[in-house]
Design a binder for these strands. Structure first.
Lengths: 337, 337
DNA sequence: CGCCCGCCATGAAAGGTTTCACGTCCTGAG
DNA sequence: CTCAGGACGTGAAACCTTTCATGGCGGGCG
């Protein structure tokens, strides 16, 4: 399977010094011309640029970084790329970063605090200019490592950093209102682990509203993904709720699958509502009603905030909370008469 | 929304020189001790290490990179993160890279050759040690940029690079055989744009087998994603095929949705088979029969090959082709009697 | 007892860039 | 015509590390 064919040696890249020499100017002038700084005559600048292009000059970022302390790279740390929420996020971050002139180191911490720690360490060592961080839990101990590196935190409210969040509590409220408006009285709630404040906020928002205007049939915590925990399955099997609010679309989909496997159907027998509006949500049959957060805007805001902080470290700290909205699809209807 | 709270200045990182001074040794000794190279007495080494730890020393990768020409970073360039195939790939690459001591720059080219070009340029400038590249098309013009940077190409057979592929033609054959074994005679094929050799191979493998043992009812090219091209919809609407082979799961799902919207059902009226085994495939109702390629193995092989090439540039070029396999689920059954 | 060798340790150069501080020359104003 | 000041250009230091070449020292062997 292996062809024998030896690649040639790496062609040495032209250095700035070589450009300068070839253009017959000083190193300093070449640098100024290329960075558009300092003072260089229009003619000389053009000449230098032409020579540089001719030699295929590309600045050595390592050297540059050494002088300036800027690497032009940022880190993005997310918990789990197989959760479709994160690729969407990553895509926007990458694109926004690119237009701001940054490359992005991506790391998937796979839900493990150790991996998270290691990942952050690697990034910091690489000298990223900043980090966008979606923490696994509220109390990740990476603080020490990240110290001194501009950081914006997504989704969780860690007061030591710039923070970008969505108004989860309001999302919970919206979900509950929607169900109640459809006529549901007995409503169950499945939430993620409360260790993550995001899960707590979602659940609490929902629960408060349900309690106030309807009946909270049951509430199970610590659901995590498609694979329903036994407790969740058990709750579903009591059949006492006509509607379910799930703390994430993945959980909602898991729930719908389980409901179907019980011989019931969604939404006729049980209405289901999710959280996140991942791409699957609208592809699922029935299409999942869910709470949408403006991922694109949040990602863009994260990059923008980070860049701001990088270029001006004494910015006042920011906390931005985005509004969420309910997108109504097929998985919710009125309760059976 | 913005709290006023000014972060403190960045705490300057300890430099190797400082470590050396604090330990009362020369710069060279400190360097040797930390890199485990050169010759340092056991006692001194330990002492230096202790001092370094105390000062929280972390080597400046930029400076290191300048001397050694190694950055410890690799680039991963994929076409589209919203296609769930790629996050899976990325996850494994990132993880494998991490255990090999590399960080990874991820870029999503969003299907645009310009973005691809720019992304590659950025990475090369950043001095990545190598690149794993999933090209958009067979003829991407990034060759010049990437010149001299170790590169492994995924999915496409570009003879100038190390190549990791899956045996798509065989996958096509498998799909066709499966349908034929189930009793189908009239089979339609939807393929991606032939500009991508992967799409061509998949389709050709399928078509050859269908032609040989059954009846190729129709073949539409240039399908791209969930959003069915009009030509595809039209073909489906002729209702002349009892089974459809799609060049990608995303396309298959699009097709199933369209079939359903025509008032038919899968697999009772039309059997559908996909390609890739993305996570949705098994979540979909009905679960999608598809061709699975060993993404994890491929990703791991890519990293391994790249690392090999980085550490030994004169390795003979490799081309590895992985076997694919059919995973039977619910979307295929026999034709209606 | 002397020599040579190996072990430890060190000084210094180099790597590519930015940027400070300084010169030169020309222009325009007085 | 003189002088000040602006525009343009340059030399050299500094950033932090690795690594080569060198040197001192002590011990084992002849």
């Amino acid at each position: 399977m292996a062809k024998t064919d030896t690649p040639n040696e790496p062609p040495r890249r032209a250095t700035l010094k070589e450009v300068a020499k070839a253009a017959g100017v000083s190193l300093a002038s070449a640098s100024y011309a290329i960075n558009g700084a300092g003072s260089v005559g229009e003619a000389t600048r053009e000449h230098i640029l032409k020579v540089a292009a001719q030699l295929g000059y590309r600045p050595n970022q390592s050297a540059k970084a050494m002088k300036t302390g800027r690497t032009g790279a940022i880190g993005l740390i997310v918990p789990d790329l197989t959760n479709p929420f994160f690729p969407s996020l990553a895509q926007v971050v990458i694109q926004a970063a690119r237009t701001a002139g940054y490359s992005v180191f991506l790391t998937d911490t796979e839900g493990s605090p150790e991996a998270e720690q290691q990942a952050v360490g690697l990034m910091v060592d690489h000298g990223v200019d900043g980090v966008i961080w979606f923490p696994i839990a509220d109390d990740s101990p990476v603080g020490r490592l990240i110290e001194g590196v501009p950081t914006v935190v997504l989704d969780r409210n860690l007061p030591a950093y710039d923070v970008i969040q969505a108004d989860y509590a309001d999302g919970g409220r919206l979900a509950a209102e929607h169900l109640i408006a459809a006529g549901h009285v007995n409503i169950g709630v499945i939430s993620g682990p409360y260790a993550a404040s995001s899960a707590r906020q979602r659940a609490e928002g929902a629960i408060a509203t349900v309690r106030e205007k309807a009946n909270l049939t049951w509430h199970v915590q610590n659901a995590f993904s498609l694979d329903l925990e036994p407790a969740v399955a058990a709750a579903l099997e009591t059949r006492q709720a006509t509607a379910v609010i799930a703390g994430a679309d993945l959980i909602a989909i898991g729930a719908m699958r389980h409901i179907r496997s019980m011989g019931l159907s969604v939404p006729e027998d049980v209405s289901v509502i999710g959280f996140d509006d991942i791409p699957w949500a609208q592809l699922h049959t029935p299409a999942l009603t869910t709470i949408d957060m403006p991922v694109e805007d949040m990602a863009a805001a994260a990059v923008e905030t980070l860049v701001r902080r990088i270029t001006n470290r004494s910015e006042p700290r920011r906390r931005v909370v985005f509004n969420v909205e309910l997108v109504a699809r097929e998985s919710v209807t009125g309760p059976k008469a």
